[in-house]
Amino acid sequence: MHCNAALIAPTFVTGLILGFIYALIALGYTMVYGVLKLINFAHDAVFATGGILVFYAFGQWFGIVQPLSGVSLVVLMAASLVIGALASAGSAFLLERVAYRPLRRRQGARLSYLITAIGASFFADYLYQQNFLLGPGKREFPNYFNVSKAFTVFGSVVQNVDVLIVVLAIACLIALDQFITRTRSGRAIRALSEDQVAAQLMGINNDRVITTTFVVGGLFAGIAGVLYAIKFGFVVWNMGFVPGIKAFTAAVLGGIGNIRGALLGGILLGLIENMSAVCVGAEWKDTVAFSVLVLVLILRPTGILGEGIKG
């Protein structure tokens, strides 16, 4: 181990930013788990769909390649976030309808749900890999948002898109928090996550609430997808796979089903990842990430902040 103390601060910053992206994706995992006690393996495809559709919308169909500025940039950014969010939400909706609901109707065994989720994830990923869609290589994302330096902190350069990520992530979390605690649908979700039978007896339409859960999770994943594509400058058929696993680890770390836990887990995981990459080398990143997951699951399965959809 050769940890360089001078590197801790800059990697801290970059790890933090990465963590916010994981947190946004983790929200989807956490909410579905809270309500259905099911890991939605296919959430990685939901995340990817948002970025990919915006790639098509503005990159292929409208062909916007020049960086924009001013009002047109704001409008385009808003549009891409909305489109991405809706695309992901739509795919989550489709996923729930086509893959999970039939199993619920048939009262399938737990294993069936997991296998279906894996099937859905791989179907979507490899569908995107086909030549009539993205193809196997990385596709350049339209660069209407000129990623440039915002400021430097602790020796690490923070880009303007990073600032946007942090701001939007916090805004989304607050919004979700309000949604869960203040709105009727949010209350219904909490009720369902506590006791499905009682919720039904209270007159809650389970199907609708479950659909809402998937859709809301999808909305945030879509926003994350668009931001991810802008930050790194490309989309690729398997762009969801690794972030999906990291986000799931983050959700478990913070407390599965717990929204604040998703944020905490995301940030923690981003930090642990980056710092370990500096200390032991980036080639051991996966080992570190999975070891963290295994340790958490064995030592504290409910995560740091505990389970349950609390705000």
């Binding site: 296998i115 179907f123 490899y126």
Partner: peptide, 8 residues
Amino acid sequence: AIFGAVLI
């Protein structure tokens, strides 16, 4: 992709 769909 086909296997994924078949799994479902």
